[in-house]
Structure formats: structure tokens, C-alpha cells
């Protein structure tokens, strides 16, 4: 763990996260979330589905795009020269192998995200993360990503070029899968920020568990798909998703 991980998971990182509610805006409209208890249930179901998938994808993207020492932790092996901004070595070039591997990981993300609204939200956040990541951690590895990558892929590449491990990337992805919606619910319901901070903090063991799982899970929640599509069709909304 390094301060780079704190930077990546910081809600102040200007990657556009504050305009997404992770489905909580529609969950509130549908009556599914209305108090700290129902918010906790919502965050848990999101953590164990979308969060788990994002964590797996982010870890895979980091393993693909970082130096040899993290390779082999996920089943997407590609050969790359060592790359790490922190080690002072020259970063890995955006090899065609890496381009192909990230593209196929992006297709895996699509397959796990059949909702067009959720795909758009993920790609919008991925693009935002690439924009700030390129400036914060310049590296040719960014060029290996598709133009609007799924958010966990951008997060995984950011972790790699910042010298972090796949586990770090997974931790950031899992944490962000609940911190964003928690903040959104706090704003929308004018909830006690201390209550929201407390319930988010109590999810830490579950977040850690999700972040240390192996492979790239495909956990889905049709409820989140439905909420996202109904939300996307609305004109009166505060959040992009």
C-alpha cells in the first residue's frame, strides 16, 4: 500500500465520480432506500455484485499492465517488460499484446454489464479516470486502453502506472463501489453524515473480503439493472447514473 492508493480512492480525485449515484438515486425513488438500514442493505448488494466484478476487473487490468512481479495473479497473462513509475525504470510500451489483452478484458466487462445505462456510466467514469490519470501518472501504458474504457480497467491501469498491485486496485474498486453511492444517498436524503460514515466504515471487512477474492467474478443484480434503466429514462435527476 502506498499513498498512491489513497489518491486513487479519494473522492476528491476529479474523475467525475460525484455525478454518479451508483443506482442509489433510483433506489430512493423506488422506495428501496430510505434510511441507514436500507442504505446499508443497498450498499452490501452493490458491493457483492457490481463491486466484486469491478474489483476483479481492476485487479486483472493492473496485472496486465504492470511489471512482471504482479503478473500471473489473474488469468490474463501477457508478456511485458517491467514498468513502474516509482521504480524509475522506463514504463512498458503500449504493446499490441497489451492493447489486445485490455480490449478482451473490456469485452469481459461488457459481458458482465448487460445494462446499456450501466455500461455508459462505467465508460463515462473510465474516461474521466483516464483524463486525470494520464496527467497524474504519465505513461505510454494509457495508450493501450480503448478510448472509453470501462471504469475498472482505467482504475487498474492507473494502479499499475502508479506502482500499485492488483490487490490495491481491487481494494480501490471495491471501496469506490460503496463510497460513491453512500455519499449520493447522504445528499439526496439529507442523512446524518456521521451515520453514513459509520455504516460505510462498518462495511470495511466485507470490502476487504471482496477485494481479496480471486478471479473476475460475474455477480449480477437484476434489480440494479432495472433501477439503472428506469433512471436513465428520467429527465428529472440529479445524478448521471
Amino acid at each position: 500500500m502506498t499513498a498512491a492508493l489513497l489518491t486513487l480512492a479519494d473522492s476528491r480525485l476529479p474523475a467525475g465520480g460525484h455525478t454518479h449515484s451508483g443506482g442509489v438515486e433510483q433506489a430512493i425513488a423506488a422506495g428501496v432506500v430510505h434510511d441507514p438500514a436500507t442504505l446499508t442493505a443497498f450498499l452490501r448488494r452493490r458491493l457483492h455484485t457490481a463491486g466484486a466484478v469491478a474489483a476483479g476487473l481492476a485487479a486483472a487490468a493492473t496485472a496486465l499492465s504492470s511489471s512482471g512481479r504482479h503478473r500471473g495473479q489473474v488469468p490474463f497473462p501477457v508478456a511485458l517488460s517491467p514498468a513502474s513509475c516509482s521504480s524509475g525504470e522506463s514504463p512498458a510500451p503500449a504493446s499490441s499484446e497489451l492493447v489486445a489483452a485490455l480490449l478482451s478484458l473490456d469485452a469481459e466487462a461488457d459481458a458482465r454489464t448487460p445494462s446499456p445505462a450501466l455500461r455508459a456510466a462505467s465508460r463515462q467514469q473510465g474516461r474521466g479516470l483516464v483524463r486525470v490519470g494520464r496527467r497524474a501518472w504519465p505513461s505510454p501504458v494509457w495508450d493501450a486502453l480503448p478510448e472509453r474504457p470501462h471504469s475498472p480497467l482505467a482504475l487498474g491501469v492507473a494502479a499499475a502506472v502508479a506502482g500499485l498491485t492488483p490487490r490495491d486496485a481491487a481494494a480501490a474498486a471495491a471501496y469506490l463501489s460503496v463510497s460513491g453511492p453512500a455519499t449520493a444517498a447522504q445528499r439526496l436524503l439529507a442523512m446524518d453524515p456521521l451515520a453514513v460514515a459509520a455504516l460505510t466504515a462498518r462495511l470495511a471487512p466485507e470490502i476487504d473480503e471482496v477485494a481479496t477474492a480471486d478471479g473476475v467474478p460475474a455477480a449480477a443484480d437484476p434489480l440494479l439493472d432495472l433501477l439503472a434503466e428506469v433512471h436513465a429514462a428520467r429527465k428529472d435527476r440529479f445524478f448521471a447514473s
Binding site: 436500507t38 455484485t49 461488457d110 459481458a111 458482465r112 448487460p114 460475474a218
Partner: peptide
């Protein structure tokens, strides 16, 4: 579901007691 090597859909739905996302009210 994979077509010509490209994954089209990959989802796992976990329902019932013990499934981490099977939570009231849904």
C-alpha cells in the same frame, strides 16, 4: 454466452439465504 470468441453475456445470479446480495427488501 460467447460468440466467435467474444463474450456476449456473463452473469452470476445468487439467490437465497447466505447469498450476499439477496437482501431485504428485495
Amino acid at each position: 454466452v460467447v460468440r466467435a470468441g467474444r463474450p456476449l453475456l456473463h452473469t452470476t445470479v445468487d439467490l437465497g439465504p447466505g447469498a450476499p446480495a439477496w437482501l431485504p427488501p428485495v
